[in-house]
């Protein structure tokens, strides 16, 4: 009698640990698959395939959006996520990753980059430059313009002529700036 009860309890346990539709016959994100040579269900679309929203996506790359506070705020956030690790928060190229051995990126505060058009910055984010990989897979075209806009703001922050400031702003500067 007792043995039967123990067996019944064990059976109940065994059933309770059954699959219960936890795994349904469909692929989850990036689930392995024996169907494809590279072993993943996450297949790249065939070359030349265009998604429905690709033209809109790409159009954002050609047209520079108007400069707004919202664009700068977005750029600041994205810059903090993707750029500051190398370029540092002020854009001097002294981020934490270069401090661990990555080649130092150039400072944004050099004449070559001050004079470069924003489209150049967007192009570098899109295609990479030197040791910097492309960030096209992580930063959307619209966000690339936002980052470029924020880099412009960073450059201005380090290179604004004191004469262009209002009296109030100059009063806030210790020693009056340069």
């Amino acid at each position: 009698m007792n043995a039967g009860l123990v067996i019944a309890t064990l059976l109940t346990l065994a059933v309770s640990t059954c699959d219960q539709m936890r795994h349904q016959p469909r692929y989850d994100y990036a689930e392995p698959s024996k169907l494809f040579a590279d072993g993943t269900s996450l297949q790249a679309p065939p070359d030349g395939t265009i998604a429905r929203d690709d033209p809109t996506w790409q159009a954002a790359l050609t047209d520079r959006p108007p400069m707004t506070a919202a664009l700068l705020a977005r750029g600041r956030e994205r810059f903090g996520i993707y750029c500051a690790v190398c370029h540092d928060l002020a854009g001097y190229g002294q981020g934490i990753v270069p401090s661990r051995g990555f080649p130092h990126p150039p400072s944004y505060h050099i004449d070559r980059l001050r004079n470069a058009p924003s489209s150049y910055l967007v192009d570098v984010i899109t295609h990479g430059h030197g040791a910097m990989y492309s960030y096209a897979d992580r930063v959307s075209p619209a966000d690339r313009w936002a980052i470029a806009a924020y880099i412009r703001a960073l450059q201005l922050s380090q290179d604004a002529p004191a004469a262009s400031l209002t009296d109030d702003e100059r009063a806030k500067l210790d020693g009056g700036g340069k």
Binding site: Y29, A30, I81, Y82, V85, V97, R100, G101, F102, P103, A131, Y133, D137, R138
Partner: peptide, 29 residues
């Protein structure tokens, strides 16, 4: 988090980074 799990804000999946993302730094370090 979003440096590697880049799609977490716009997609159902946080997504695992592609090898390309690892190599952004580890091509040099």
């Amino acid at each position: 988090c979003r440096y590697c799990h880049a799609s977490v804000e716009v997609s159902a999946q946080a997504s695992l980074p592609a090898t390309h993302v690892c190599m952004t730094c580890h091509s040099q370090i």
